[in-house]
Design a protein around this nucleic acid. Structure first.
Lengths: 256, 256
DNA sequence: CCTTGACGTTGTACATATAGAATATTATTC
DNA sequence: GAATAATATTCTATATGTACAACGTCAAGG
């Protein structure tokens, strides 16, 4: 479904519009039609029509004076709609806070969306002098780092698809596929995953899966910290805390 | 809902997709293809293709078991991109907080997007026992209430267009167009607008315009409270505070 | 267990959104 | 201030996304 396969979308305007919105979201400054079209390999006229339609929907803003486009507040309305119904963030926050303070590390709650990305939906910063940070809304490749090993272990995906996607990942210190597969297998047994500097050098990530219903992976919890700090605090202990919190969350999510 | 303008969009898929996203955002429960299509007057097949495209972009989630669709966390990514670059909310928050506590009312910062809607982008709750509330991300018709009078007064819109749009508004106690036009004219002179129970019975709203550059209306500040409470605190004083905060914001926005 | 109804999904003809070139508009340089 | 370059926008033919109907599938009710 979310494959990289050839299946051509029956509504390509959507993909283009989403690309425009993301580009505007990541851009520091307002952009003109041609700049957007060039960046996204779109035809300027098509790009213009899409921008006008998006502006009509109040998802992008248009400054007639400078003829530049930006994101508009309409995206806030959508985000609010999502937040209103999301129970995960509410349930996860106290658990994230507790683990973050007890272990002095930054904790993230991420949502898994298909095999493409995971998105940070909740966070709790640690207490140390120096803390890693990631904004709510940030996207990461679904199979990267420790959370990615959880997705691979519990997502119920075709091993062949995993192999293909694995080859497209960008790590700072890439593991070999065989080594990664072994770690994924271990994750399936222990219920948590560890990434020691593979994704980002010097950064250790410990993650555990959260299921919205038995067998249905939907989120993951992740502790991120500098490798030295994690080792000092005891990696095993941390892994136990993260996995415990994730289990507790899974129960509450599938429960009521 | 979109526009009365005759020009047919060159990318109607966008409008439909946006409508789907908003519908899902406002829906309490996940929805199926047909339910969405029926609600939005779409052909089911088209609706299906749009949903698939949106799912591919991680803007909607799909539960293969129930075949139901929901908003997905991708909308958070867009909202984050918007928040990152928005200076208004950061600059407005302390001013909103101050006026809210000094006058014991709820203060809203809204962004004006064309003539269609304004969107709440910042808020500060008052201190009283009972407070009115509006969520960040909520949308209101652009010309409604006191903020609407500001838009009409300072938006630089064609009077004829204003008249047409005015007739489409829904007030609890609608003013006549002539009366409304007079109030708008007064707003243009005084720099603030008041709505005493027109939009919502018993609720008084005082608003003042914020300009991103001289003459370019972009936002508005609004104080909302129960009519009795506002009168007790002194409407003139409140209006002065709101207008003062708005002026100060305009200077800082156009300044740096 | 069979029937019924509603839903999700897939093929196909047609209307139309898109690509590309041409034109208008703005910014920049001399 | 004129000339130039880059940009935004309009125009038009055609590839293509959309609407409609037919199909397959599932759940409820008899």
């Amino acid at each position: 479904m979310t494959s990289d396969s050839a299946a051509p979308s029956k509504a390509p305007a959507i993909a283009r519009a989403a690309a425009i919105l993301r580009l505007l979201g990541r851009s520091e400054a307002p952009l003109g039609v041609n700049a957007i079209a060039r960046e996204l390999d779109l035809v300027p006229s098509t790009c213009l029509y899409l921008l006008r339609a998006l502006a009509e929907e109040e998802l992008v803003g248009f400054d007639p004076a400078t003829k530049r486009y930006t994101l508009a507040a309409g995206v806030l309305t959508l985000a609010r709609g999502w937040l209103k119904r999301d129970r995960f963030a509410d349930l996860a926050q106290p658990l994230l806070d507790r683990v973050a303070t007890e272990h002095g590390l930054t904790m993230l709650g991420v949502q898994v969306v298909g095999l493409q990305h995971m998105i940070v939906v909740a966070k709790a910063l640690g207490t140390g002098n120096f803390q890693l940070n990631a904004e709510v809304g940030s996207r990461f490749p679904a199979l990267i780092s420790a959370t990615g090993r959880c997705v691979a272990a519990f997502g119920g995906h075709d091993p062949e698809v995993l192999r293909r996607r694995f080859s497209g990942l960008r790590w700072e210190a890439p593991p070999t596929f065989d080594h990664w597969r072994d770690e994924v297998a271990r994750t399936r047994q222990t219920g948590y995953a560890v990434d020691e500097g593979n994704y980002i050098a010097g950064v250790t990530v410990v993650a555990a899966p959260v299921f919205r219903s038995p067998g249905q992976l939907s989120h993951a919890l992740a502790a991120v910290g500098l490798g030295s700090a994690v080792r000092r605090g005891g990696l095993e202990q941390l892994a136990g805390a993260v996995a415990g919190a994730a289990r507790s969350l899974s129960e509450r999510l599938s429960g009521a």
